[in-house]
């Protein structure tokens, strides 16, 4: 709602300048807008809304996929509240999200700035995007093998350099950071490219003005780059946060929740309950809770980061 208000404000600000008729015509774009969103709406309704509604229904049932769902009311939710593994999965996922965001966003922003200011070469950009060309599952398998304690090549290098070997996947302290590192490796170049595209879109004259004003590099970065980059940064943050909450592939093909419960992240726990243990109702209920958590997180992010606005207006 607030964003809507802001928008009309910026729109009126824009139209306060020469031509008021333009904005008048714009307020009545509903028909044409419906035409524009019609195809997307089909996909939205049939492949997102319907399955979600169905999933919400199933969260109130006992359903093992092969039989018929049986209505059990709030039973699943009551059981979840008392399920230590659910709370554990929340905590573990939280750790992962925090680490992943920190690593990925910081590295990607740094890389994007480097690409923008130092080396605008396509080859470098392509090289950094290489890990993203590998599928999640394969990347996870590859690292699972390379990081093996006993015969992994990375641990061999670690030993050669005189450090003790690290049980990357097996030790409870390392299991989650390792998952975050793998995903950062795969997504770093991708995220950097998104930010880079945003950097490229910042009009160059803004920098020229700053230069004329004698601003330092850091000032320029803080006062110009970051604010103007905000829409893209918000996009990147929202997408990586949501994506991180849904970490699954890497865990599924490597630690499968272990050691003990150290990597039993929420999405994997849903999978385990719903598909492995054929308790689809219970799994759906956790998924609904995850959905609510994500909605809250996204709402907070949008609100605080004001992602709907561009400072260019």
């Amino acid at each position: 709602m607030t964003t809507l208000a802001k928008h009309s404000r910026s729109a009126s600000a824009a139209s306060a300048s020469p031509k008021p008729q333009g904005s008048h015509r714009r307020l009545g774009d509903l028909k044409i807008a419906l035409l524009f969103i019609a195809p997307a709406m089909i996909g939205f309704v049939f492949f997102y809304v319907l399955p979600t509604v169905r999933g919400i229904y199933l969260s109130f049932t006992e359903y093992n996929i092969l039989g018929d769902p049986e209505w059990v009311g709030m039973d699943n939710y009551v059981a979840i509240a008392a399920d230590p593994l659910f709370w554990n999965s929340l905590a573990v996922t939280g750790q992962y999200v925090f680490l992943n965001i920190l690593l990925q966003t910081a590295l990607a922003l740094g890389l994007a700035l480097l690409m923008h200011n130092v080396a605008k070469s396509t080859i470098i950009r392509g090289t950094l995007l290489l890990p993203y060309l590998m599928s999640n599952v394969i990347a996870a398998l590859l690292w699972f093998w390379m990081l093996d304690y006993q015969i992994g090549v990375v641990n061999q290098f670690i030993e050669w350099s005189g450090l003790p070997r690290v049980a990357f996947f097996g030790s409870e302290a390392w299991a989650i950071p390792t998952q975050a590192l793998i995903n950062t490796w795969r997504h770093m170049g991708y995220t950097a490219l998104l930010i880079f595209a945003g950097l490229q879109a910042i009009p160059s004259h803004v920098y020229e003005v700053a230069k004329l004003d004698g601003a330092s590099a850091f000032q320029t970065f803080r006062k110009i780059t970051i604010p103007l980059l905000r829409p893209v940064l918000v996009l990147v943050l929202v997408v990586t946060v949501i994506g991180s909450f849904q970490v699954f592939d890497t865990v599924a093909v490597t630690t499968a929740g272990g050691p003990v419960n150290a990597t039993r992240v929420i999405q994997y726990y849903i999978y385990q309950r719903a598909f492995t243990e054929s308790d689809f109702g219970y799994g759906s209920a956790i998924a609904v809770i995850l959905f609510l958590i994500l909605a809250l997180v996204a709402f907070i992010q949008m609100k605080f980061l004001k992602g709907n606005e561009s400072d260019l207006d």
């Binding site: 093996d148 304690y149 015969i151 992994g152 049980a167 097996g170 490597t254």
Partner: peptide, 9 residues
């Protein structure tokens, strides 16, 4: 080997 060192290969 310790269990934690066997997660991998």
């Amino acid at each position: 080997p310790k269990l934690e060192t066997t997660v991998g290969a």
